[in-house]
Structures are given as C-alpha cells and as structure tokens.
C-alpha cells in the first residue's frame, strides 16, 4: 500500500500549486497591504462596515439554514415515506433545480419577485394589492433565493437518516397507542437527528461563502461577506482588507465546521 502513496502526489502538487500557494499569498497580503502589521485585521474586526457585514452574513445564513433544513425535512419526508406517485413528483422537484445553474435560478427569482415581476403583477391583477410590494433588493429575496438553491443539498443527508429508521420502532410506538403527532415528535424526529445535524452543517457552510445569489437578489442592499470581498478587490480596491476578510472567513468557517463535525461525530456514535 505505502509503495503506491506516491501516486497521489500529482493531486497534492496540483492542490498545493492552485490553492495553497495563492492562499499563502493572500495571507501575506493581509499582513502587508498597505502597511505591514495587524492593522487590516483590527479594521476588519472593529469597523462598522465589515463587522456589520459579518453579522448580517451570520444572521442571514442562520435564517437560510433554518428555512432550508425545515423545507428539506418536509420534502424528504414526502420523498421517503409518501405514496409512489408523491415520491416520483417529489423526486422531480428535487432533481430539476439541480440541473439549473445558480445564475439562472437567481434571475428566475428576480423575474418572479421584482416589482414588475410575476407575483406582483398577479397580485395587482387580482386586486389583492394596490401597488407593488418590495420583494427584491432585500434580505427576504436573499433568503428565498439561497434557500431554494440549498434545499436539495439538505435533502440527501436527511433521506439517509430517514431511510435508516427501523419501521418496527414506529409500529411499536403505534401499537402502544402513541398518536401520530407523538410518534413524529418523540420518535421519528429524534431518530433522524443525525440527518438534521448533517444537513445543517452542509447548508450553513455552503451558505456562508455565497456570492451570486445575494449579489443579484440583494441588489447591493444586503451585502454579504463574499460580496464585500469582491467590492474591496474590484470596485474600491483595498486588497489588504479583502485578504484579511478572506482569512477571517476561512478561519470562521473552519472553526464552525470543526465544532459541528465533532458534535455530529458524537451523534453518529
């Protein structure tokens, strides 16, 4: 076995050259541009703009994760435990968005939610509202768009957990006279907790680095960390700040991953 370890060297070299070296460059930049020292970090962690963006990102990502995982739970329930017809319909609903690019989906939501979009037009035509409701260029739109993208990713860990539930345990609870509601809350839901944890982990980590969806649907009104980094590189160049923010983002995600993975590992035991 050990003799063949050298075979993975090309991959390591490629990753080193394409990820590690540039990242080290960014780390260097964060300590040197424009002046050597920790000034960039102290600005990123204290100034109103970056801290506000960090908090908004965390808040929005928690919301997105909550929305995605809850929606995904219901969808997975239908997919795993529904009648054959319900199952195939749900399967299509899960798979089709997977084949559509994130950009198209964001534009799709724009044409749905914007002031002259489908939803506002319908509501006005039906006389339910007088003037358009602002549904884009705000956090609502960002949460909707991001959740829509992330739901399928939450479905798979949940499906695995739900398929592993021993049917006899549910039958046993039913035989003891437990209501459907009690069986769901006290038996099925806790038995799928590891899936919920896995889905949460996956969706949260994905959501933190999101760029396209918040940029398009937020319309510059709810800037998230990734968009701020973009702005600091291309619009108002402050590369040192962008680099420091990147490192903070990287460490933050790594830290969250570490804590959640440990928790997940304990649950899986």
């Amino acid at each position: 076995m050990r003799a063949f370890l050298f075979l993975i060297c090309p991959v390591l070299l490629f990753l080193g050259a394409s990820y590690l070296l540039p990242f080290l460059g960014i780390v260097q930049l964060s300590f040197t541009d424009p002046d050597p020292g920790l000034a960039q970090y102290s600005r990123v962690l204290t100034e109103d703009l970056p801290t506000g963006v960090i908090w908004r990102t965390l808040r929005l990502c928690v919301m997105v994760t909550a929305v995605s995982v809850s929606c995904a739970y219901v969808i997975t329930l239908l997919w795993v435990r529904g009648s054959p017809l319900v199952r195939s319909i749900t399967e299509l609903c899960i798979m089709i968005p997977f084949w559509i690019s994130v950009l198209s989906r964001a534009f799709g939501w724009l044409s749905m939610l914007s002031n002259r979009g489908l939803l506002n037009t319908w509501l006005q035509d039906m006389g339910l509202i007088d003037s358009a409701i602002q549904m884009t260029r705000n956090e609502f739109a960002v949460v909707v768009g991001m959740s829509h993208y992330l739901i399928p990713f939450a479905v798979f860990p949940l499906a695995t957990a739900m398929r592993n539930v021993d049917e006899r345990v549910l039958t046993a609870a039913d035989g003891m006279g437990a209501t459907r509601l009690r069986i769901f809350w006290q038996v099925f839901l806790p038995m799928t907790a590891s899936g919920i944890m896995g889905a949460t982990l996956l969706v949260f980590v994905f959501s933190i680095g999101f760029y396209v969806t918040p940029a398009l649907l937020g319309g510059g009104q709810s800037v998230l960390v990734a968009e701020l980094i973009y702005l600091w590189i291309f619009q108002i160049p402050q590369w040192g700040m962008a680099a420091a923010m990147s490192v903070v983002l990287m460490l933050g995600v790594g830290g969250i991953l570490y804590v959640l993975m440990r928790r997940y590992g304990e649950m899986a035991k």
Partner: peptide, 16 residues
C-alpha cells in the same frame, strides 16, 4: 393494536 392492548416484543426488539 392499541385497542387490543397486548404487549409486543418485536423481532430485533424495536427499542427507541
């Protein structure tokens, strides 16, 4: 099953 009120030990135990 509940109305009959019998105890049941399932194959594989079916513990929570």
């Amino acid at each position: 099953a509940n109305q009959r009120g019998f105890g049941m030990v399932f194959q594989g135990y079916a513990l929570f």
